[in-house]
Each structure stands twice: as C-alpha cells, then as structure tokens.
Simulated scan of single mutants.
Amino acid sequence: MTSAFKTTILGVSAIALTAGAALAQDKTLTINSFGGAYEEAHKKCVIGPFEQETGAKVQIVTAYSADAFAQLRAQKEAPQFDVINFSGGQEIVGAAEGLLAPIDAAKLTNAADLYDFAKANLAGGEGPAYSIAAIGLVYNSEKSPKAPSSWKDLLDPAIGEHLVLTDISNGYGMLGFLMLNQVEGGDLTNIQPGLDAVKKLIDGGAVVVSKSPEIQQEFAQNDAWVAPYASDYAFTLRKAGLPAKFVQGTEGTPASYITTNLVANRPNTDLALKFIDISISPAAQACFAEALRYTPTNAKVELAPEVAADVAYGADSVKGLIRFDPKAIEANRAAWVEAWKKTIAQ
C-alpha cells in the first residue's frame, strides 16, 4: 500500500470519525432540572416524550434556578447547557446579558396557543413560560370556619394563631408577602405597609416558618388553618392525608413563572427548539398540572375538574396572575429580608 493511499484512507477515517462525533453531539441536549418530584415529572412530561420522538439523549444537570444561572454566567464563552430552565425570573437578566438566544415563535408549533404573557419577549431572548406556580391561599377545608377568598382575610383576627406565614427568604414566601403588601397599599418601592401587616399578624398569634415541610407540620400537628403559599403545595398536603384546598385571592394571584430558555452560542439550536416546543405543548403542560398542580400557560390544555380546582385554569383565571418585577425583587432582596427579620423579631 502506498503512503499516499494510506494517507487517503486515514483522512477518510478521520472525516468519518469527526462526522460521527458531530452526529452524536447533535443528538444530545444538556438541560437543568430542579431535582426531586419536579425532576421526576420533568422526565415523564417532557424529557421522555422528547427522547422518544427525536431519538436524542437528554443529559440532566440537577440545579435550581440561581445555581444554574451562576453556572451559565461562569461558562459564558463555552456554556454546557443547551436549554436552561428558570423559576425566579433569571431569563430577564440572562437575555439582557446575551446569555440566552432570541427565539423565533414561528419555529415553535405550540407558541401560537400560549397566553400572551407566556411568550411576551421571545424575540428578546426570554424563553416561554411553560408552567406557573400560582401563589394563593392554602387552607384546611375541615377546620377553617370559612373558606378564605381574599388576601385581606389573612388579617381576620379569628384566624389569628391558626395562620402560617413563610419567611421571605423563601421565593413563595416573598411573593405572598408582596401581595399582602400590595393589598395593604404598598408597592415595590414601599414595603412598609406589608411589614406593618406582618407585625400585626404575628402579634395576633401567626407563626413564621422558613421551609415548605414546616407548613405541613403546622397543618398536621399545630392546628393551622390558612397559609399563603403555592397551589402545588395544597396538593402535597392532600397527598399526605391532610384536607387542604387552594383558592386564588380576589385581589390577584402572584405568579412564579417557570420558563424554558434557548442558550446562546450552542450548536444544537434546532434540537433545543424542539425540546422547548414539547415543553409548551398541551400534553406536557397537562402532565405537569396533574403531577404537581402547576398552572398551564397553553390555552388548549384540558384538565380534569379535580386538577383544575387546584390551579389557575383558563383564560379568565390567568387574567388574575400578577408577576412582580423579578429585577426589582433581586435588587431589593437583601434589604427587604433584613427589614423582615427586624419586624418578626420585635
């Protein structure tokens, strides 16, 4: 065999290997998910159907929003994620910093069916919201003398020591507090009305917890009646055998948007867009609602009555969703938490 022929064969082999590696890379996506029950639902509702439909493989990095965003920032020049999921508004900052790529809505077959708020800035790089954690009033349907219907019901002295508040270091606790602040006349430039209300509630016997399992403990062991918290946690309490229900406050429902975002400077754009498209499909969103009681953002989702009762379901219900500006929350978080700590310590 001549050296020239050997060189040709080696060259062809190298090209074949390179092409094979590229193909393998093209059929693999790296995403983050949030661990625990959420990640299990993610696999069932989105990842499994995506792998089955495309033949691709999804690599999961378990990371909550803040940690995933920190990784994305640190890896700006060579990001590991193809698709990144957030629940704390990080997509707004990520898009502004060029870490996320704009999305052409025409490339998503399900985008047209999303509520407008869920696709408001695709062209700016903010990925679509594929689920909503709705914050309202979780209550014990057997012990509470009446079903709450308003955020102002939290101030009813009859609830008093049967009320559970969540520390604002908890994301859901923060949103519940900001809603209470709003109905008391405050806004994101003035949280004093909310702090005054919290002081009054604590003086009336309300307890403050920091984590969701403590809410379950209060409902199970300490005669709690009401807690401002997320719709999915009412479902968690029921699964634990507690008679918990969820209701939206008449003044509005704070919303934590769960978004799926296209990472900039990655080679698998078409495959990543397919993953995002499946995430916003009616089937995937119905699956999340059934598994975890998250509010769907696709108008074509159909839910069983018992599931619909636990979420903000349908065009009329989602009109009541309120998104407090994530940038304002992040900018003020440290100061607000400090003010909160002083209030509950008095």
Rank of each mutant, 00 (worst) to 15 (best):
I322A: 07
D316V: 01
P296H: 03
V307L: 06
I329V: 02
L321A: 03
I329G: 09
T295N: 01
K327Q: 13
T250P: 13
I258A: 15
D310H: 08
P267Y: 06
A304Q: 03
D316I: 02
I322C: 07
I322S: 05
T295V: 02
L303P: 04
P267A: 01
T260C: 10
N261C: 05
A255E: 03
Q285P: 10
Y294D: 09
S281N: 07
P254R: 09
A230D: 13
R238K: 13
S256Q: 14
N332A: 12
P282N: 04
R333K: 14
S279E: 13
Y313G: 11
E251G: 06
F275H: 11
G314L: 11
S281C: 07
R323P: 10
A240V: 00
L242R: 14
S317N: 14
A334M: 11
S279Q: 05
K327Y: 15
L262D: 00
A315N: 05
V263M: 11
D325P: 00
K300L: 14
L271P: 11
A308N: 06
P243Y: 04
K319R: 15
P326Q: 09
E302W: 12
K327L: 13
I276D: 00
G241V: 11
F246Q: 05
T297G: 08
F275S: 01
G241M: 00
A312Q: 07
D325L: 04
L273C: 05
T297W: 05
T259Y: 01
Q285A: 12
F275E: 02
D316E: 15
E251Y: 00
A291K: 07
C287R: 09
G314S: 15
N261R: 00
P305L: 10
G241R: 13
Y233P: 09
A308C: 03
Y233F: 10
L273Y: 05
A283Q: 14
P282S: 06
Y294F: 15
A264P: 15
P267E: 01
P326A: 05
P243V: 09
N332F: 13
L273A: 06
T250I: 15
K300I: 09
R323W: 12
N268H: 00
K274I: 08
V247P: 00
P243K: 11
T295L: 02
S256H: 05
D325R: 12
R293L: 12
L271G: 04
G249C: 00
T253S: 00
C287N: 06
T295I: 01
A234P: 10
L321H: 02
K319Q: 14
K274G: 08
P267N: 08
S279R: 02
